[in-house]
Amino acid sequence: MLKNVSHHTIDVTGLNFSYPDGHQALQSVSLYVSPGEKVALVGPNGAGKSTLMLHLNGILRPSAGLVRVGGLQVTEHNLGKIRAWVGLVFQDPDDQLFSPTVFDDVAFGPLHMRLGAEEVRQRVRSALAAVHMSEYPERLSHHLSMGEKKRIAIATVLAMDPLILVLDEPTAGLDPRSRRSLIRLLAELPQTMLVASHDMHLVAELFHRMVIMDKGQIVADGVTESIMDDTDLLEAHGLESPCH
């Protein structure tokens, strides 16, 4: 599944970003994720997590600073390649699943990579199998439950065979069982991963490294265990250790 193993890195340096209304959402953010590493991104509401993620495949462009993915700078010219490498799953699955049927949605990425019909069908099959939803291609997106939608949303990017997965709050709104099986799924996947989450149990369980953002800045970056032990740091940024 993994091609170019040495290249699927995320490398953000000195990233600044302001929204058109003037709100500065990111301030000199620097982050390096090495190939195959899984990193959690935590922080209070409005910290800038989603904003950072939208930079990783060129949906938002830096006001200043550099974003490189797989060794390539995110520019108009590289956009096609970078979007094929980076699978971005949005916070709300109703944004991610925009087609009437599950099949159409999962096929959307591969079709827009201009793959052949047989290859597209094959990719839809294996992506749905990877999220354990093989029986779902004919289903209508609007009749799915929240947990099913989240899984299908992940399948829509897996079908593009990405090197890097960027997931925005994958476990939000899930019941304990769906959450558990999603965690198992994420542990199975081999890709480089950056996952934004408020779910500290998920972070503690799945990620060796975590990054804390607050007010548009990265305020901590290190081994999950030691950060989780630093209750003062967590409290200062409105977070809670999972042991409480």
Binding site: L54, R83, F108, H112, M160
Partner: peptide, 17 residues
């Protein structure tokens, strides 16, 4: 939704099988 489409390679033309 447009962002989600763009993230999966949409460049202004919908493609189908």
């Amino acid at each position: 939704v447009y962002q989600a489409m763009a993230a999966r390679g949409y460049r202004g033309q919908i493609r189908r099988l």
